[in-house]
């Protein structure tokens, strides 16, 4: 508040007293005029800046390409699944993943080649049945053939 005492020793009357209080605070009208000035001030962005923001928005929207796109899709799929797991359809999401794993496992089991030694053609060539014995090819042993020959 004012340092001037309205009833102090200066002997000033009511007008001076009012002026003293006026010196201490602006009235609401004066503040409103200042705010009106602030409102009227030009705060619009420049066209260049608007174009830069727009460009950035479009860049953020553009989908990635190639390997980045595959990674992006995998990420989105994983995120979709996580949100499904957390949501009301978690049972379907879980069952879907189990089914996908089962299908993947079966496909790998059918498509992956067995160990090389297990193939009949190699067993014949190697002369082994895989149990340490001789493969029954219907031919006499090689040593007998050599002796006869």
């Amino acid at each position: 508040m004012t340092s001037k005492d309205p009833y102090g020793a200066t002997g000033s009357g009511r007008a001076n007293d009012a002026a003293g209080r006026k010196d201490d605070h602006l009235d609401d009208d004066a503040i409103d005029v200042l705010f009106a000035l602030a409102r009227a001030r030009d705060v619009a962005p420049t066209d260049d800046f608007l174009a830069a923001v727009r460009h950035r928005a479009l860049m953020m929207q553009a989908p990635p390409r190639g390997r980045a796109r595959r990674g992006f899709l995998a990420f989105r799929g994983a995120r979709l699944w996580l949100s499904a797991i957390a949501g009301p359809h978690r049972a379907w999401a879980g069952a879907g993943v189990l089914a996908a794993c089962l299908v993947a496992g079966l496909a790998l089991g059918f498509l992956a080649p067995p160990p090389v030694g297990d193939l009949p053609v190699f067993r014949a060539a190697l002369g082994s049945n895989g149990n340490g014995g001789t493969v029954e090819t219907g031919l006499p042993p090689l040593d007998d053939l050599m002796a006869e020959g």
């Binding site: 608007l50 727009r54 929207q61 553009a62």
Partner: peptide, 27 residues
């Protein structure tokens, strides 16, 4: 629409909100 890749939506959002945010930040 923006999230689905609509370019027109991106432009409209920019036109609608950039001046508003800029004005507040400037003030």
């Amino acid at each position: 629409l923006y999230a689905r890749g609509d370019a027109a939506a991106a432009r409209m959002l920019c036109a609608r909100f950039t001046p508003m945010v800029h004005g507040l930040a400037f003030r």
